[in-house]
Design a binder for these strands. Structure first.
Lengths: 147, 147
DNA sequence: GCCACAGTGTTGCAAACAGCAACTCAACGG
DNA sequence: CCGTTGAGTTGCTGTTTGCAACACTGTGGC
């Protein structure tokens, strides 16, 4: 589009590196809660309950994948399913107390890690990265159209 | 550790969302070259050759994982191994012509995608995201100490 | 020169992660 | 009542990853 095109290849490389690395790193940071489990619980806690379909849309995964991961979390006692009164097809997913507990511990480690990596950054820079990533992620949902 | 701490949780969530989503999206964008293959070829092309151990360090993966992925790429004819004269232990990995060809196609799609997602951004914003991510990734290597 | 040791990569095994297609069950519209 | 759509689940398969054990190369005593 404009002449910021020269930035795009570099941006792609950073996005790829981050994506491939972040998961492995998270596994090391909190071995008791896998990256997948962490991401799901984190999302459910943030939204205070969500349906499986929303998670499918959010991560662009197949519904069978989400179904299995939810089942695993439930069996591990980290999440509970609530049936919505008016509609027996959908189920509201919510982290259990134990789930919140593990999530809080994992969160603490993640925050410490990101803190460490952004040590020496100005508050504005941290904020800018968060804001720009948020915009990018939001655009992602729109572009992909993966509902 | 200043009062930008309030930004960190939000930043973590964006990083998680991006990491979990980006891979699935890349698979859809260029089905002929998996995300894993793309990341490796991209890195090899950029550095114009690298050793397996460097890739291990870069992505924080187990060396067996890299070994297998390199083997797969070689069998697919997308990469060649060169033995370094002075040292028969190491091998220099390089994308083959066919590898570069597929990489170029995948790159084109990735660039288009990122372009689309950053449509409406100012050049400075795109540049800022790239720069901040680059700094974050660079810090990652340092913090993790994963050599 | 030989032998322990460190470096580099490979392989056997097992687990987590993911997609596709076929299925069940619930809701809705005639 | 029946066809259709929506929401999840399950069988099957393939990929991605880690760990431990291995093979082979180079290096440094001795």
């Amino acid at each position: 589009m404009t002449d910021d095109d020269t930035e795009v290849p570099g941006l792609v490389r950073e996005l790829v590196t981050l994506s491939r690395r972040f998961r492995a790193n998270a596994e090391r940071l909190h071995p008791d809660l896998s990256f997948v489990d962490y991401s799901l619980l984190s999302e459910l806690a943030e939204r205070d309950g969500a349906r499986a379909g929303e998670l499918v849309g959010l991560y662009g995964l197949n519904k069978s994948t989400i179904s299995r991961q939810v089942t695993a979390l439930e069996r591990a006692g980290l999440l509970v399913r609530e049936t919505v009164p008016g509609n027996r097809r959908v189920q509201l997913l919510r982290p259990s107390d134990r789930g919140r507990e593990l999530l809080a511990r994992a969160d603490a480690r993640m925050y410490r890690e990101v803190d460490a990596r952004t040590a020496g950054w100005s508050p504005e820079e941290v904020r800018a990265l968060r804001t720009l990533l948020a915009r990018y992620n939001a655009a992602a949902s729109a572009v992909a159209g993966d509902t």
